[in-house]
Design a protein around this nucleic acid. Structure first.
Lengths: 200, 200
DNA sequence: GTCTATAGTCCGATAGAC
DNA sequence: GTCTATCGGACTATAGAC
């Protein structure tokens, strides 16, 4: 028989998500979160370094898995595809799609939480660049492929999260890659040639 | 004769940059910044809603200028180029290149400040997407062109900030666009075909 | 588990500029 | 008189120290 209830971290995460939905992030205090989870504030800060981090408990696992997928990619001659594939093949439904949807809604609605989300993405990007470098990809190519790959995937993910009839994330990523191909400017001068140039 | 020294905001910004360099962001208190700028903490919070914002006073102006450049672009048939051009043509040296270099170094060294930098970029991205939409660009194309364009420009900017002999930002952006073109996967199956397929 | 420093808010007061 | 920038002090919550 445990002396205290077990699963404090999970209860804190659940309580925080509920309270952020009910009253907003700013208007919820750590004290309230801790009360609903039946622990003290001290316990909250034992599990999470700050109030925001309570919604990002999974981020280490996500980052590690994606970096590993890049390191394990069979071929890195197309680094951008390596990145999009590593992202698309991750199981994003951790804890259930509904929880993820609620979590994203809360994050999007609160600048403070969005800041944290963005820096987590940035940390993933930094480590993916390092992984590509280790696979022999040149520095600038690794950086651009990673950052662009993340944006391509984000486009697909946005569609997927909107729940377009349970579409496949891999297919949506392929569609986003097609869109990227259409958007990249063709070689030549930056701006469409002037009428004079076209005439000649 | 003014009752107090004028230019409190500038003094606060200068003092903050110096102190963040000397002792780091976390180990600098608002009280110290205010003391060095010869005002009270109350005055600090009149100018800046929080401690981080003291390094982002220019961000509204930057965002507005870039959005306006997108709205004024002569042609939006290549939205990605519209974005990279709008970014490349902005005068990034505000307050002198040396101040900008120091500012970036401080931000990069402090996660808390980096968070804020990233959400500022995200705000610019959101408004650029809206601007492209107003120019008639389709939603998903606008989103991807904006996000990718920002990453292309960021690649160029990173080189420029490293100070490669005063290279031209427009040229560096063109070089980054060339790199992007080389990175975008060619059409076809996601992965290199298997040996069997190649043989046939 | 308690104590404390810092961030950030709120209300009111003051005094020069217009 | 009104507007604006400043100051003073009390107050809460976060987060780290003891």
């Amino acid at each position: 028989m445990p002396r205290w209830e077990e699963g404090s971290a999970e209860r804190l995460t659940t309580a925080a998500l509920e309270l952020f939905e009910e009253r907003g992030f700013e208007d919820t205090s750590v004290v309230e979160i801790a009360e609903r989870a039946r622990v003290t504030t001290r316990t909250f800060f034992r599990y999470f370094p700050d109030k925001r981090e309570v919604l990002f408990a999974e981020s280490d696992r996500i980052r590690t898995a994606i970096v590993q997928a890049v390191l394990d990619a069979p071929d890195v001659t197309q680094p951008l595809r390596v990145v999009t594939t590593a992202l698309a093949q991750f199981d994003w439904d951790v804890g259930g799609a509904e929880i993820q949807r609620r979590r994203h809604a809360v994050i999007a609605a609160n600048p403070g939480l969005l800041e944290r989300e963005l820096i987590k993405q940035d940390e993933i990007a930094t480590e993916v660049v390092r992984a590509l470098r280790r696979r022999g990809v040149e520095e600038e190519a690794a950086r651009l492929a990673t950052r662009v790959g993340i944006q391509v995937f984000a486009t697909a993910y946005a569609r997927w999260a909107e729940g377009d009839g349970g579409a496949d994330l891999t297919e949506l990523t392929e569609a986003a890659t097609d869109l990227l191909r259409a958007l990249v400017p063709t070689e030549g001068p930056p701006w469409p040639r002037t009428r004079e140039e076209v005439r000649s």
